[in-house]
Every structure is written in structure tokens, then in C-alpha cells.
Design a protein around this nucleic acid. Structure first.
Lengths: 355, 355
DNA sequence: TGTTAGCACTCGAAGTGGTCGAGTGCTAAC
DNA sequence: GTTAGCACTCGACCACTTCGAGTGCTAACA
């Protein structure tokens, strides 16, 4: 379910049982309290029955390995990005959601409605439940199935294309044709396309049409020419993979680490410059299940002290988008991972029904 | 050009010339520096040739009137919301924009394109030029002129309505009809509507159809019934006046007064809850020219330390939307007012061309 | 060899007191 | 009506102290 970008298990870790248990407890405690964790706390609460002094020895080792560090002498220790990574990959115990929680998620996503509102409600649900920012990338247009297409003549050589997708979703685009088509011609071309391709996704429609064109170039009739020209232009993939919905950005202001105005500003500016976020989400499209970016693993400066938990969601077994949450690195991964995972499944199922 | 919600001129102000000049200078200086202004500064720089002591007397009067106050003993004075209001209504001298500035604005709005991008670029231009948040309310759908309407049958009794507006803008809605119509019937209804009503705005189309229905209820043919049912549902005004575009919210983080995380959070949450903002903008629709809300005059707690400068913009002489900027109360009103005013005119003109 | 107790040390948080400067209100003199 | 002068207030700033949490290191212990 979780795919990690690095595999610490591939060679035997130099961490013994005890060090791992301590690290696990330290990370969990830091996630809970947000305060650096000292040796005394660990000695008292970790259940390991070791004196603070021994624990300090272990912590010195962990620090040397780059898994934790201290903000200054004589503060406790805090996990580094690497520490979080190790924690998530090897130490984290995920308790699956209770039946009841899943049901509650399901209710929150809401009754079946049009897909756009489903996505919006998934996004704000993620934000609410996590108290962080929820994000849902819209389905790629070229992955969704075509139901119906209509062409309407506009002035000049322009034609308005109306694509009906998943029964209720509608997309428009205006295309420029090489010559003026009569309403009747447009009607015929639409009929042809509807009969031949309803139910297939846009990308494959386009590919197949181009294929046919090559093969039968000689003996095409008027109708085919019109249909192919139209479809060629109309089904071009949307310029930019997709768009995304986001909710709850303001939640991020609640976290102590985020209260630095400058950092916050940088973050919001990243959200506004959708390109970066989209690119990041795009990477997650191809991952199998839940994926986690910790700190600057995302490669974007602005997400430096943030982590991103994502999962692709599917319609008809085909990945069509990605959703997830963005929050401070010290988020409750054990909760977020199943929540994101389940939400992705629920959203997929709901989208399937709309269809 | 500026309409004020209260009219301090209606009864003779108790402020003599000197007090007014001092208040004006104080507000201007505070807007410039963001620091409380003391009696010494006023004495030195106001050009009034008065000693600090005399000035203190005047300031005591102004404070009693509620126009200024001091954050604490022995800080300088700061304008209150009332003070800003008086300043804006009676003291402000607005220098109209230079020809060159107008031209530069015009260029920034950009070449004629589709209306949606025009609005977006107006919004981000306002934000950029003001270093505050720019806001543009989208045109009310029922005010725009209908070019063409098409009906497409969906499954069951559902019909997809495609409205083409201003040549290139397209809007869809799905309506539920009382019975199933054949494609031919739909085609006929659309033809009828297109012939009779192209060029008129949606509201008047709907009104007129309803009128006709009453008059000729007896002798209506099938076609008319279909057309009227369809149009009745299709041209219903959109549920909520419209939507708005906003740019540059993060600019607001730069102002000292706004650096309070809690206040900022409240503000962003207001932006997210579009309803309030829309309601506020809606009020401005009916005003003549530039309108200014200072501090809590807007009636929204969250906009407490913010001011809003707005102006409606017109297409064909008809008000279709509102634009403006949101910033801290101590914004440079003398610059913002002409900028908002001119932008509204330019946007109107640009929209006219698209049409 | 691993564990623990003890000790000196570091560092930030928080509190204290003192000075400085800007600004005020008030009063008396001009 | 205007001004000079004076006592006062208040926040900003600085130096200083105390306190507690936490550390590293070493020596003693099992």
C-alpha cells in the first residue's frame, strides 16, 4: 500500500531493535506534542526501562546517522526529514480505519451528484478531517469516457464542440476549421462519431481516428473528412494535465512551525502558482498506492517543512487523478495514510456511480 | 465620482480650516509611514507654523470627535475608521491618472481575448499595481446578451442547454423537462428561440416568454409549449449572482497591520466563504461610481482593519459586474480611487469589444 | 561490556530594573 | 489665542539574573 522512494530494507539497517524503538517513540511523541523530546521523557515514557544516560548514548548514535538532531544544545531532539522517512518506511504501524469511520467518510463525500461536486467535497472533507490542506487533482480529460459529442456552428469557420462525459459532465471548446461546414454536415459528423465511439476515452478515440485516416486516405468520403478534422481538433488533450481543487489552506496557519509569516507566504504563493503543484501531483499519478513526500523530497523549496500524502484514484480500474493532504512534516502519518487511501477508494467508487 | 454612505456636508462640520488641514496631513502621513503621528512631527512638517503645544490642543479636539486616537499614552495619533471616512469624503484630493499611466493600464489588461481571461487579467492587474488584493466579480449571467441557444437530448427527461453568449462564451446547464422531447422537437424549439430572441439579455427573454405564455395560453401550438418550458428553466438566473476572481491575497501579508496571524486567518477564511464577499460586492452593483468601505463599515468582522474600494463596470451602458481592491485601512486612497475607476472603464470597454 | 549516577556545562525562556526618547496634559505666561 | 515649560506616562531597548531542561563526559558498578 505504501511505496517508498528509498528502500532502507535493501541492506540490513545498522539500527538495533532498541534504537528503532526509541526512534519510533521519539517521532510519535514529537508528532503528538510538537516539542523537542529529551532523554528524561524517553526514559520515563518509552517503556524501555533505561536511564536517561543510556538513552543519551543511543540518541548520540541516531544523531550521527542523521535521523534526529537538536535545535540547539540542551533542547531535546527532533526528527530530521531522514528520520521521518525511516519512521514512515520501517517503523510506522498503521491501524486501518474502523468500519464506522469509513462509513462516516462515505457519508461526508455525500450522495451521488455530479462529478465536479464530488471532487470538491472530497477535497474539503480531507481538509476538515486532517485539519490540514486537502487537495484533489481533477481527472485528466483525455482519460474520461466520451458519451456524446455535438457540433454547433458559430460565425465564420468556428465550431463549438460540446463534449458530454460521464453522462452529466459537459465540456466546451471552440475550434477553428479549415472550411465552413453547414449545420447538416456538422450533424452528420456528430452522428458518425457518436455511433462509432461513444463510451471510449478521448485519447483512444483520437488515436483511432488518426489511424483510420492514414489507412483509408484514398477512399474517404466527405463525411469522414469532416468528422476526422473535427475530432482531431476537438479531442486534443487539454493543454495542462488538469486542474486541482484545494480546501483548508488556512488550517496550515494553526501549526506552530508554520506561523512564520514569510514561510507561509511562500507556501501560499506556491499554491497560487498552480504549475508546481500540478507537476508534483502528476508524479504521483504513476505510483501504485499511497505516496509520501517528506520535507524537501518534493524538490520544491516552498514545501520545505511540509509533507504531502497522496493516493491516485481510479475509475474503471484506470487512474484518472490524485488526491491527498498537505501539512507540516510532523503530521500524524498513521492516521493520514489510511484516510487518504480510503478517500481515494471512496471517491473512485462514487465517480463510478455517477458514470 | 465618489459616493459616500454618509454626508458630512449636510450639516456644517464643526471642524475649522486648521483642524481639517491637520487631520488631512495626519492621515496622509500615517498612510505613508504606518507610524502614529505625534504633535512634533505635525508642527515641523505640516506647513502650518504652529507649535507642538497648539497642535496638541487641536488633536485633543479631533480625538474627542472620534476622528483619531492614540494606541497608548505617548504614542502619536492614528486615524480611526471615522477619521478615514471624513478624510475620504471631504479632504482627499485625487489626482487623475496621467495619460501614460492609463495607457499602461490598458496594455496590462491585454489584447482582446475571451471575456473570462479579460476578467482574470483585470483582477491580477489590480492586485499587482496596488500591491494588495484585487477582486473582480463575474458578470451576472442574466444580464448578458444571448447569441444562440441549443438543446441536446440526454438520457431520460434531461436536456442539456448550451447558451452561447457574447459570441464566444459558452455556458451549460442540464434541465429536467416534464416529458421526453424528440431531437427534432428540441431543434425546432431552439430555432424558434434563436430567431425571436437572439441579442437580448436572458432576464428579458425569460420575462417576455412568461408574458407571452399568459396572453396566448389558449391557442399555443406544441412548439410554443416546448420552447417556453425549455426557456423557462434554462434562463433561470444562476443561483447566486455570480462568482468572483481574486488575485494577490498574499500581498496582504506584507502590511505590518496584517501580520497578526489570527487576523490574517480570519481574512482568508472570509475569502474562502465566498458568500460574504459576494454579498458585499452585490451591494456595490447599484452604486453609481467608485465606492469605499472603510474598516467595519462593510459589516463583516473579518474585514475589520481592511478597506475596500470598488467600482461597477458596464457593458453597453448596463452594469454587469463590480471590481476593486481590498487592502489595509491605511491604503493610498488617492491612488486607488482613480486606478479602480479607470480599470472599471477599461474593462468595460474591452468587454464591449469582445462582444 | 553494557549500564548508570553524577557533575559541569550550555542554552533559551522569563523576569527585573534602568535608561532613553517620544509624546502627552496641564498650567502659567505672553 | 498661542506658546513655553514641566511633570508624567509609556513603550522600546539593553544588561543582567535566575531557572529549568537537557546535554556530554567520566568514573563507578554489575
Amino acid at each position: 500500500m505504501i511505496s517508498s522512494t528509498q528502500k532502507p530494507d535493501s541492506k540490513p539497517t545498522p539500527l538495533n531493535e532498541r534504537a528503532q524503538r526509541l526512534l519510533k517513540f521519539l517521532v510519535e511523541r514529537y508528532i503528538r506534542d510538537g516539542q523537542p523530546v529529551g532523554s528524561r521523557t524517553l526514559s520515563k515514557d518509552s517503556g524501555l526501562d533505561l536511564s536517561p544516560a543510556s538513552i543519551r548514548n543511543v540518541m548520540a548514535d541516531l544523531e550521527e546517522l542523521g535521523l534526529i538532531n537538536s535545535p540547539h544544545t540542551s533542547a531535546g531532539r527532533v526528527p530530521t526529514a531522514l528520520g521521518y522517512r525511516f519512521f514512515v518506511d520501517s517503523l510506522l504501524t498503521i491501524k486501518p480505519l474502523a468500519e464506522q469511520e469509513i462509513l462516516s467518510l462515505k457519508n461526508q463525500i455525500g450522495p451521488v451528484q455530479d462529478s465536479r461536486s464530488l471532487l470538491a467535497s472530497a477535497s474539503s472533507m480531507l481538509s476538515e478531517i486532517s485539519s490540514m490542506a486537502g487537495i484533489v487533482m481533477l481527472p485528466r480529460r483525455d482519460m474520461v469516457a466520451l458519451r456524446q459529442v455535438e457540433f454547433l456552428p458559430l460565425s465564420g469557420n468556428q465550431v463549438l464542440v460540446v463534449l458530454i462525459i460521464n453522462e452529466h459532465e459537459v465540456q466546451n471548446r471552440i475550434i477553428q476549421t479549415s472550411r465552413r461546414y453547414s449545420p447538416a454536415e456538422l450533424q452528420q459528423a456528430a452522428n458518425y462519431l457518436n455511433q462509432s465511439f461513444a463510451g471510449r476515452d478521448l485519447k483512444s478515440v483520437r488515436n483511432r481516428l488518426l489511424g483510420e485516416m492514414k489507412q483509408t486516405r484514398e477512399n474517404m468520403d466527405q463525411l469522414m473528412v469532416a468528422a476526422i478534422e473535427m475530432a482531431d481538433k476537438a479531442f486534443l488533450p487539454a493543454e495542462q494535465g488538469g486542474d486541482y481543487l484545494m480546501a483548508g489552506q488556512t488550517n496550515l496557519m494553526n501549526y506552530a512551525e508554520m506561523s512564520n509569516i514569510d514561510r507561509l507566504k511562500q507556501l501560499f504563493e506556491t499554491f497560487n502558482r498552480k504549475r508546481d503543484v500540478l507537476h508534483l501531483l502528476d508524479q504521483c499519478m504513476h505510483a501504485e498506492g499511497v505516496q509520501i513526500f517528506i520535507g524537501d523530497e518534493s524538490g520544491y523549496q516552498a514545501l520545505d517543512e511540509c509533507s504531502l500524502v497522496t493516493s491516485p484514484y481510479r475509475v474503471d480500474g484506470e487512474v484518472v487523478g490524485v488526491l491527498g493532504v498537505i501539512g507540516p512534516t510532523r503530521m500524524a502519518y498513521d492516521r493520514m495514510i489510511p484516510i487518504v487511501d480510503v478517500t481515494a477508494r471512496l471517491l473512485g467508487a462514487a465517480l463510478n456511480q455517477v458514470k
